[in-house]
Design a binder for these strands. Structure first.
Lengths: 340, 340
DNA sequence: ATCCTTCGAGATAACGTTATCGCGAGAATA
DNA sequence: TATTCTCGCGATAACGTTATCTCGAAGGAT
């Protein structure tokens, strides 16, 4: 096996369909037909072409095919972090693969400018569609792309400034379930620490928690702590909630980062005494002591639905915009059943 | 903002450079120059073209550019799992971005056929290069692609059947460090449970562990347990190692999955008594009790090096093939310091 | 005043594929 | 036997961009 000829010191030139056609002694179009399994090609031609393909190690250039046909067979996913535990993304990849679609995933990395870069880049690549876990505040800049027919689906949060399909969890019910679970185990002073209300899900969850408190005739003061997830802020919130005349005996954490930060702040002894229900599944939740009771999002369902919504929009760009709310489930493991 | 005109019920047609040129009253080539910031264009032409671009909401088609220029500005990463904790992949993405490269990541999912599909697909897309965390046994089918100039770098494991650049951890030293650490804490009967010796890293680590035992004048029998990572197999290995006349007082686990399986099998009480050093960092290792002492791979270094090796090969396809061994570090957290 | 250079813009040919059209040969029909 | 139809393959034009070449105008030197 010898290195392919190079032209003027650069990369070696790869054989193209023209080369295969010449080698096989047939027309270019016939090679294309064979490559695409067109049944109207005679067996002897198929044999000749396949022999030439093998002899030259020809591989079709996907870029040229995409340019010509107009479709890429690829969808984009702009999520906060690839390479972190992300069951939605895993489900997206699985569903996309099952649909014969390639997935191009990129991390927005909690950076609004980067999110924009990624989305614009995906539009320039003319992907067949984009799933985005939106982070930025305003996505109106995507309106021209929507007008031009780019299918976009939002995941976990809606997008502001544009109207697109969306799939997300039932945040309000999840908080209600967590609260109710602790209430049933005898807790009356239940606190909440979660993400900033500037973030959509943080807002929804904090609002739902306040509503749950009021619905049970409890006051709100000193119990609801949305904000940035930093060790300092969480420590301060814990301090407010757990000390004082009427200390909370139970805690709901609004997302995974908050849950882990709280556990680290509390330390093992305090964590073993405080009733805790976390929003979001936590890796290794079963290995902690006590094992962690959480409100788990149906992440696989969310990812799969995102792809299905996207495919539906690709198939029919004119269909009405749709929002799918996916229910959440309580995973009882121990930490949420500590009595008051 | 009105929907772009559609042609015969299909997707709306996007404006092209030709449309912009017509709108601006300039030549096609001039639009291309403006889009590519060619400084030789007069300011009044730039203004006209930019106005036309804004008026039509023109976005260049990356596919056509790639076809014409021959480079995609994209590298592929075929790893076992995206959407799981994968610091190497995170480092690859970061390094690629800093180099102005787009990353196309896909999960081989521990499936040899799928790995092949992904790699072949990446070759068909004419990506600028591929980083692969190899899984399959034989990659000779990639030889034609290498001959055609496709740059490939292996990560974590070498590839068999072809000769490509590779970056991986110093497995032997890591096992030696783990063994030595436990030995220093007074342990004499130290067992090993790890991945199958059919897997490259599993083989390297098991071999290194046997060597460590012999170097310290210990016998090997009943102490070294490579194999599939299943609950049953690990339970049996634990049983053999920890019972009997000379039970092991310390354990080295060969990778993250083994570590977690061992912890789940032992349960909290037994885990708190057994000295344990794991190979590979474990998420939430600091929250476990006792916190987990591990031999951590320098994953960021590995991912970054992979991109750098790839870029070097892209720049000079003829350079000699290189293997980079990255040292590992011991993270002392508690589980490995339990005395005999 | 003429020539040569430079500079900026336009015409046109690629890149590697697929889609449209056409055409010749053989089969089917009158 | 002449005519139509079908079938299978080939020539050629796109797809949307960049690269090469050309060319006219302006400016400086002789």
């Amino acid at each position: 096996m010898t290195r392919a000829r190079r032209e003027s010191g650069g990369r070696p030139r790869r054989p193209t369909m023209v080369d295969v056609a010449r080698e096989a002694g047939v027309a270019l179009r016939t090679v294309s037909r064979v490559v695409n399994n067109d049944p109207t090609v005679g067996p002897e031609y198929v044999a000749k072409v396949e022999a030439a393909i093998a002899a030259l190690n020809y591989r079709p250039d996907e870029r040229a095919r995409q340019l010509r046909t107009g479709v890429t067979g690829t969808i984009g996913a702009a999520v906060r972090r690839i390479a972190e535990v992300n069951p939605e993304l895993a489900a997206i990849e699985r569903t996309a693969r099952d649909s014969g679609l390639t997935l191009l995933a990129a991390s927005t990395d909690f950076d609004e400018a980067r999110e924009r870069d990624i989305l614009v880049s995906m539009c320039r690549q003319r992907l067949d569609g984009i799933i985005v876990e939106p982070f930025g505040e305003n996505h109106a800049y995507l309106q021209p792309e929507l007008d031009a027919g780019m299918p976009v689906v939002a995941m976990d949060r809606p997008m502001s400034g544009i109207s697109v399909d969306c799939v997300m969890s039932d945040n309000a019910s999840g908080i209600g379930i967590a609260f109710h679970h602790l209430h049933q185990h005898g807790h009356r002073r239940i606190a909440y620490i979660g993400d900033s209300e500037r973030v959509f899900s943080g807002r929804e969850r904090a609002v739902a928690f306040r509503a749950a408190l009021r619905a049970h005739g409890e006051g709100v003061e000193g119990l609801v702590h949305p904000g940035e997830i930093t060790a300092e802020r969480v420590a301060a919130a814990l301090d407010t909630a757990l000390r004082g005349p009427e200390p909370a005996t139970a805690l709901v954490t609004g997302n995974m980062d908050t849950t882990l930060t709280v556990l680290r702040q509390l330390g093992p002894q305090a964590a073993a005494r405080l009733a805790l229900v976390g929003f979001d599944e936590v890796p290794l939740a079963d290995l902690l002591q006590p094992a962690l009771t959480v409100v788990a999002q149906q992440t696989a369902e969310i990812g799969q639905t995102a792809v299905e919504l996207l495919r539906a929009r690709i198939a029919d760009p004119g269909r009405p915009v749709q929002t799918v709310i996916v229910p959440v489930t309580l995973k009882v493991r121990g930490s949420g059943e500590i009595p008051a």
